[in-house]
């Protein structure tokens, strides 16, 4: 009888080990499969939604343009002839901000957050400023961010 119990106990443990090992064996590639790939390196070019580069002269004085860069949605405004690039993603819940030229603010339509021209959060729920990027212009007019 005792021998039977110990055999039963051994088999129970064996089933547990087999299931456990199988689970780990399957889980490893599944976890790897589910973890998103990080974005690739290379030039950080400002483009439209289709990936076409936006040229420096396409953004007129006082206007804004929302496009994409490697850092995600990015908004560029031109003030005093100079381009200024900031992340367009509101730091509150991820909606995209819009440039309101007559108020000199970036406005988030989701929860009415406001940022000043430098991206500093000035009212509403956004907890931190918008990320700012350095702007360089390539010889062919493409806008490069860093």
């Amino acid at each position: 009888m005792d021998e039977n119990i110990s055999r039963r106990s051994f088999l129970t443990k064996l089933i547990g080990v087999v299931f456990g090992a199988t689970g780990i064996l399957f889980a490893a590639p599944v976890v790897k499969y589910l973890i998103p790939k990080s974005s690739e390196g290379g030039e950080n070019i400002f483009t439209n939604a289709d990936g076409k580069p936006i040229l420096e002269n396409e953004i007129k004085e006082g206007a804004s343009f929302t496009g994409l860069s490697r850092s995600g949605p990015t908004i560029i405004i031109r003030r005093g002839g100079k381009l200024r690039a900031l992340s367009a993603v509101c730091t509150h819940l991820g909606c995209l901000v819009k440039w309101v030229p007559n108020e000199d603010v970036f406005f988030c339509p989701c929860h009415a957050g406001k940022f000043d021209v430098n991206g500093a959060n000035i009212s509403g729920p956004p907890p931190v400023p918008l990320a700012a990027y350095n702007v360089e212009t390539a010889n062919d007019g493409r806008i490069l961010l860093s």
Binding site: A49, G67, A88, L96, P109, C110
Partner: peptide
Amino acid sequence: ADPLNTPEHI
């Protein structure tokens, strides 16, 4: 969907 334009009052 337009990933570059958040509509008002979502």
